[in-house]
C-alpha cells in the first residue's frame, strides 16, 4: 500500500460525520458492550463504541469470512443450473484494534493466494476499516506488544490515535482519504511530536503490563522446530477439550469446512462453508473414517506451529497477533501461544 499523507481531525467532527452516515442508513459496525465482554455490533450511534476493550469475543473476520456462508445454489433437473454467490455490501468497520487489523491483513494475503477466494475478496472490497490505536492493554490475556502488533502494518483505510481533543489519522487508502477530506487538516510538527510521546508512553505501559515473551520473536520458528517432540504438547494436550474455541476466536484462523445441503425435493440445494478448526478431532477425519492427526497434544502442536512456525516462515510474519482471545476462551488455560512458547524455551535451555 502506498503511504498517504497523515492528517488530524477533531474527534467531535469525525464522530458527527460517522453519526450522520449512520443516519443516512450506512451500516457501521463497532465493538460494543456485551455483558462483561464486548462484541461487534451494528451501532446506532458512535456513543455505543467501546474504544478501549475488553476485547470482542470474536474478531472482525466474521464480516469478511462469515461463520456460515452460502457459496452457491444449484438446481438439478434435466440440466444442472448453478448460481455462485459472490456478494458484498458496503460496511464500515470502526474501532478495530491493531491486532485485528494485522489479522485481517494476513487473511487478505491468504485468501488472495493462488486460487483467489472471490467470496472473501468481494466482501473485502466493500469494507472500510477505521482502526483505533490501543493506548491501554485491552485485557490481561493480550500480548500484542510482544508480537509487534501494537501498530497496524497496512490493511486499514484510516487509523486513529486518540490525542485528547483530536484524532491523529493515518490514511491508508483513497477510500479513507475521501471519507474525511472535508474535516481533515494538515499535521503540524507539534502533532507529530505529541504522537511520538503518546506512543512512547504506550510502549512503556504495554512493556510493563503485558506478559513477557522469553524467546526472541524471530526465533519462534526455530524454537518450535526444535521442540516438535517436546513433552509440553501432550502435557497441555491432556487438558484440551478439542472444542476449537481457540480457532473460532482467532483473527488469523481461516480454515473452513464445505457441506452440500439438498432440499427434500432433491432438486435444489446449496453449498455452504462453515468455520472449522484444527483443534477439532474430526478436522483431519477422511471419508474412510481415519483421523490422521490423532492425539490432543498433536493437534495443539499443529495450531501453535501454524501460528509461529509454518505460516511465520511462509509469510515472514507471526500469525499470532497477540490479541489474547484464545487464552481467554480456553477453559483449561492450555492454548495460549505465549505461555507455551515460554515453557518450551525454559525447558529447552536447561
Amino acid at each position: 500500500m502506498k503511504k498517504m499523507k497523515n492528517c488530524v481531525v477533531t474527534k467531535r467532527e469525525l464522530l458527527d460525520l460517522i453519526d450522520r452516515k449512520i443516519g443516512e442508513g450506512k451500516e457501521v459496525i463497532a465493538p460494543a458492550k456485551q455483558e462483561n465482554q464486548a462484541n461487534f455490533k451494528r451501532i446506532k450511534s458512535t456513543r455505543e463504541i467501546l474504544w478501549e476493550g475488553p476485547q470482542t469475543v470474536i474478531p472482525p473476520k466474521a464480516f469478511l469470512f462469515p461463520q456460515e456462508e452460502e457459496l452457491m445454489e444449484y438446481e438439478v433437473n434435466d440440466e444442472i443450473k448453478v448460481k455462485v454467490k459472490v456478494e458484498g455490501k458496503p460496511i464500515i468497520l470502526l474501532g478495530i484494534h491493531p491486532c485485528d487489523m494485522n489479522g485481517t491483513t494476513l487473511l487478505d494475503k491468504v485468501f488472495a493466494e493462488n486460487n483467489l477466494d472471490e467470496h472473501y475478496l468481494k466482501k473485502r472490497e466493500f469494507v472500510t476499516i477505521i482502526g483505533a490505536e490501543c493506548l491501554v492493554p485491552c485485557s490481561t490475556e493480550s500480548f500484542c506488544y510482544r508480537k509487534e502488533s501494537v501498530l497496524p502494518l497496512e490493511g486499514f483505510d484510516l487509523f486513529l490515535t486518540d490525542m485528547g481533543k483530536n484524532f491523529f489519522v493515518e490514511v491508508g487508502s483513497k477510500k479513507g482519504k475521501s471519507l474525511i477530506s472535508k474535516i481533515a487538516r494538515k499535521t503540524t510538527p507539534s502533532d507529530a511530536k505529541k504522537l511520538r510521546k503518546i506512543r512512547r508512553v504506550r510502549d512503556n505501559l504495554f512493556d510493563k503490563e503485558q506478559r513477557k515473551l522469553k524467546p526472541k520473536l524471530e526465533d519462534l520458528p526455530k524454537l518450535l522446530r526444535e521442540n516438535y517432540d517436546s513433552p509440553v504438547w501432550d502435557e497441555h494436550g491432556s487438558r484440551c477439550f478439542n472444542c476449537g474455541s481457540c480457532n473460532m476466536v482467532c483473527p488469523t484462523c481461516y480454515c473452513f469446512d464445505v457441506r452440500d445441503y439438498m432440499e427434500l425435493n432433491l432438486k435444489r440445494g446449496n453449498r455452504t462453508r462453515f468455520w472449522d478448526g484444527c483443534l477439532l478431532t474430526d478436522f483431519t477425519k477422511v471419508a474412510s473414517g481415519e483421523i490422521f492427526r490423532e492425539g490432543r497434544g498433536a493437534r495443539l502442536r499443529h495450531r501453535t506451529n501454524r501460528k509461529d512456525w509454518y505460516l511465520f516462515e511462509k509469510w515472514e510474519r507471526s500469525f499470532c497477533t497477540g490479541c489474547g482471545r484464545c487464552g481467554k476462551a480456553c477453559l483449561t488455560k492450555i492454548v495460549d501461544p505465549l505461555d507455551i512458547e515460554n515453557e518450551l524455551y525454559d525447558r529447552w535451555k536447561r
Binding site: I58, F241, N242, C243, G244, V249, W275, T281, D282
Partner: peptide, 10 residues
C-alpha cells in the same frame, strides 16, 4: 462430532 463450544463461539 465437535462440541457445543463451536456453535457458541460462532
Amino acid at each position: 462430532d465437535y462440541p457445543v463450544c463451536v456453535d457458541c463461539k460462532m
